[in-house]
Design a protein around this nucleic acid. Structure first.
Lengths: 190, 190
DNA sequence: TCCTATTCCTAGCGCTGCTAGATGTAAGAG
DNA sequence: CTCTTACATCTAGCAGCGCTAGGAATAGGA
């Protein structure tokens, strides 16, 4: 029957609608505003329907985060590709990373501060996350020196993550952001 | 007569009890387990009493965070003081910072990731926070080069913060922690 | 001893994530 | 074409959250 096919298609569409609604609501008003009741109203179904697609609210946030990984990876790839030289690549990639976090704070949070039920440091890391990480690694590779590439990449990433989160929570003045960014870039590109 | 004095003293003791209970509960079970009802039970008063001391749960968390700033500053001071040379000081301070965050995750969160309503521009909080920051600044001062001291300090701090938070949320393997730490230290002490 | 001011508690509001059980609907069997 | 079964979906509700209004108890001063 094509009936079942239609059913499955509609179901997939509804799942997309949930993720899209969650993403939009989170971007517009933050994750606290994303309640299961509001999500249900948004997709025009009742609350329990959400739980036939996702285990819970955390799983919905994780789904939004996975989308974010793809976006971030694309951003980093393009930043590195258009850089004139390796040193400039570090600066451009760092700026692109910070801009991504700045422009989509809620998505960034879902990716890197909340939503713990995603497999990160194991084998089956989301491929888009691995792509983004690999891009960071290629960016800093010319400057690893005697250090381990993976350790340098993770440390560079941590530096970016720290800058971004501390600034967004009001611990660092936004005005000095570029100066800090250039310090970090300097320390990882020589 | 001295009745009012006793009253005020008891009130101050109760406020301390609230903070201590919140701190203990947060350390043992995380901030999610710190509910106003459990807190009230712990100090053997009813829930509304909490609100005669603090504006809300956030303010209680902020009070715990303030205590944390003093502890962290003391830790950093002692780490730097006992270091053999400037380069070793960077390594020791970094290790002390990471250890502090690792051993008191909930307090660290209250200090640097949650509790946004902290009076960052007031007198009490910035004192201990500024002491810790100043200690970081003195630690990296010999290695600022042509950069601005404040920018380098903030960037170094961000690196530590990123390492600590990404590791604790499972984004970075705990096994490689020391390697990452030494990369960060290396980039900020030459 | 009475009055007043303060302290503290009981009870409850509106919200959260989540779920059990009822209800309607569609597919398959006779 | 009818009946039964299985599934999709909804209504209603649970237990918990932060927070607060309003009443009861307790103390201090006249």
């Amino acid at each position: 029957m094509s009936t079942q096919g239609r059913r499955e298609r509609e179901r997939a569409e509804r799942e997309r609608a949930i993720i899209t609604a969650a993403r939009g609501l989170a971007l517009a008003e933050g994750w606290d505003a994303v309640t299961t009741r509001r999500l249900a109203a948004e997709i025009e179904y009742s609350q329990p329907v959400l739980y036939s697609h996702f285990k819970g609210k955390d799983a919905i946030m994780a789904a939004v985060a996975v989308e974010g990984f793809a976006e971030l990876a694309a951003t980093l790839v393009s930043a590195r590709a258009s850089a004139a030289d390796p040193r400039q690549a570090v600066a451009d990639v760092a700026a692109a990373y910070a801009a991504f976090a700045e422009q989509r704070p809620a998505i960034y949070d879902a990716m890197f501060t909340l939503a713990v039920d995603l497999p990160f440091a194991s084998q089956d890391v989301p491929t888009d996350l691995a792509r983004g990480f690999a891009e960071l690694a290629e960016t800093v590779r010319p400057f690893v020196g005697d250090d381990d590439l993976e350790a340098v990449t993770e440390t560079f990433w941590s530096g970016l993550h720290g800058l971004v989160t501390l600034m967004r929570s009001g611990r660092l003045r936004r005005a000095d952001h570029d100066r800090r960014l250039s310090v970090l870039v300097g320390r990882f590109s020589r």
